[in-house]
Amino acid sequence: MAKATLLRDPYNIIITGVGGQGNVMSSRVLGSMLADKGYFVTIGETFGPSQRGGSVMSHLRISGKSIWSPQIPEHKADIIAALEPIEAIRVLAPYGNPDVKILCNTRPIYPATVIRGEEKYPSIEEIKKSVTKLASDSIFIDATEEAQRLGNPILANIIMLGAICGSRTLPVEKKNFEEAIAGRVKPSLIEINCAAFDVGMKLSQG
């Protein structure tokens, strides 16, 4: 299969969020979209002992040449997509660089330490300002609110996936998503997932 040249090879994407947000699902859908196009895809997933509530991230490596390490080397992320805002910052420190593209959902999920009052959660304005200062190519998306408008907040993960694909950095199109999602959700849910993907695509294109 003829493959478009990647902006960088390997091209490194981190999808991060909180356990329960559908992080793993979105990384696998994106991975199979690219694998189906003939690329080598390596996905590394980090999920801790808690199925929900902990920080989680998936590392995706896209390459025309080979499989790569399931852990992206430090400061080598090309895209960081965060389903939760402070998780963008958590990942930016070890994996970011001045050229990284950040796609960030704005809806906070408060950590237990914040709920207990032991730690403070930064304001969304502060998050936006400081992230943009470090990584100038940053887009903030109200993915959870958009997902609630579609009827289910869990669709934020697919909206963010649409945003990644809409950022014109990967050789993928809507129809690749349609093919990839079809095998993973019940037929009755395909339409709503496609609608969520469209919302994300549009939002990332401004």
Binding site: A93, N97, T113, P122
Partner: peptide
Amino acid sequence: FVSEAKKLAERATPDRGLTF
């Protein structure tokens, strides 16, 4: 970049800890 990103992370990323 490393030191600024680290400072930001220390300031703005409350620990998620482990919870039920």
